[in-house]
Amino acid sequence: MTDLQKWIQSNTYHHSQFWDLKKLVEEKERQGLTVSLCLPTLNEEKTIGKEIILFRSELVNRYPLLDEIAVIDSGSEDKTLEVARNFGADTYLASEILPHLGEKKGKGENLWKAIYQLKGDIIIYVDADISNIHPRFVYGLVAPLIYRESVKYVKAFYDRPLAFSGDVRASGGGRVTEILVRPLFSLFFPELTAMIQPLSGEYAVRREVLEQINFPVGYGVETSHLIDVHHKFGLEAFAQTDLDKRVHENQPTQALGKMSFGILQTFIKRAKALGVIDKADHETVLRQFQVKNEQHEQIEIELMEDERPPMIEVEEYRNKFNRKLKKVK
């Protein structure tokens, strides 16, 4: 078994492993940890009320896992803040946190300002557009941090097959992940291909890590986190939890193009800074995911993009067509 496969086995969880919330809360309290939930919003009145009710009922009242639920809003024009306040969340406008540092537009801005505004030793970020919200979105992510001191950054992935035959099936992320991010990681940061869904918007992180890393304000925030945390703390700082299924509105392809463009900018900036651009020549293995017997495993695909020279350089060709090799300056 490769090291990467070992990591996948020991650092990949399923939320059902953490069903015992009583035990989880006891362990949290024993360590004296505080946990904050941050919901970054922009026009999310349809889903925000439900998220807050569920988290407050299950993870504040019933099992006090969360010490704080805060909505950090980018200036919604609908009733997002009113609904959130009504159901008992703390609400903040991103622009009013550290106002002298100016205002940048994007989800990453809210996540970054949350570090200043929120009190917890652990901050969990959950997108506010999830229509099948459930307490597992929080406890599934926070539990590896509470149970394992070495884990610092836990990322969600969603993998619930509806129907498949045989015992091996493909797994992995969405379109941008599989088309853009996984090939890029395979080339430049092979260890990061161990993350099944590097772009998922739900993650729980220790404050000591959050305060040490940059936050692109736009689409690149997840990608940059992975690269920076990996660089500073190594792969062992990560874990990932399968949260089954996440229902949200699908993005049209053009929006994905925008997203990819943002990610690429962030990526190239980091790849250059870390001096890994030249490494691309050596890596010829694409790492994708499959599930076999309920276990996630990587498949390594050797993909050597070989090339042929211009035909004019082939002697037989020149003889047949009576062509001459011209020297081009």
Partner: peptide, 13 residues
């Protein structure tokens, strides 16, 4: 209310 409404959302879904 939170417990009741959360149960309503979970039962209803």
């Amino acid at each position: 209310s939170e417990i009741l409404l959360a149960n309503l959302v979970m039962v209803g879904e």
